[in-house]
């Protein structure tokens, strides 16, 4: 699944480690989401969206594989 996590993270000048700490996951999980290797749970997707003051639909493209 494509996401805008990397784009939004970089726009805010955050490292993967800092974002991971903020949403309570490992740095590898953020990296896996950014590279499309891992689809986050709904809970984590909502936490990520809230962190960037966005919505899940804006952050994740569920039609892309």
């Amino acid at each position: 699944m494509n996401s805008r996590v990397r784009e939004l993270r970089q726009a805010r000048g955050l490292s993967q480690e800092a974002l991971a700490r903020a949403v309570g996951v490992s740095r590898q999980t953020i990296n896996a989401i950014e590279t499309g290797r891992y689809d986050p749970s709904l809970r984590l997707a909502v936490h990520l969206a809230r962190h960037f003051d966005s919505t899940v639909e804006e952050m994740f493209d569920v039609d892309a594989h």
């Binding site: 490992s26 590898q28 999980t29 984590l44």
Partner: peptide
């Protein structure tokens, strides 16, 4: 590393458990 945590049964988040 994630593989280190999974092999040691020390899961940190949902991806480790997955």
């Amino acid at each position: 590393r994630d593989i280190t945590r999974v092999n040691a049964i020390e899961y940190r988040d949902e991806r480790d458990r997955s």
